[in-house]
Amino acid sequence: MLMMLSKADTYVLNKTTGMISATLSPIIRIMQFPAQMVYLGYEKARDIIKVYSQNKQLREENIKLMILKNKVRTLEAENRLLGEMLNYISLPEAAYITAKVVAEEGDGFSHSLIVYVGDENRVYKDQVVMSDESVVGRVENVNGKYARVILITDINSKIPIIIERNRERAILSGDNTLIPKLLYTSLSTDIKEGDIVVTSGVAGVFPVGLPIGTVKNISKEKIEIVPMADIERLEFVKIVDYGIYHDVMNFSQENKEK
């Protein structure tokens, strides 16, 4: 019965479980310090071992990035110019807060995080959560100074996406494994291994064009996507506010009323 009630998204149940979660999260936060110390020591030792090879790799990467930076600057200028010519209204700049991962839930049944967000008014439901480079999930609920994040690998996660190369649309669905799958792709789809998957912006929760992952395995039954972010090693996440969520919600509410 409780399961059915929670499926109906009852306010009282959500509030109660949220309250328990918010009460216990600070304890987990304190308890993780010893584990954190062990992990930091391990990371430090690993970094020292790898420092020379990493340095060489970074120098090479830096040269590539300098070339890329010049290209991006030229493209940005060109894009701005073309936008002005077409009277294009661009999306607002994103603001974000960085939140520390306090607790991690992960097994075959669900994949989520609890993050410390501090001031509760800064974060709201369905905000985009990113690692350094790509989308890792969305905010499910905020309880006091803590927020629960549903990861893109969780079975509850369904994200409208497009393939960057050919703008093919699909839904990225988590299934409690580390490799989410694509749903609702057309039979004649032209998706290739290595294609980059980005958010499509449909439904208004995620803005357009945020990178998520790359296509890995394509078979008749499924298309697998490897997330760009290392989902298993998230220490900090960025909770991004594009300022469009409330506008989209208001817009759809107004349309419903009409």
Partner: peptide
């Protein structure tokens, strides 16, 4: 209740 509240599984499981 504690396990259900901390995790993302439906309440009651």
């Amino acid at each position: 209740v504690v396990a259900d509240s901390l995790g993302l599984v439906p309440l009651g499981v």
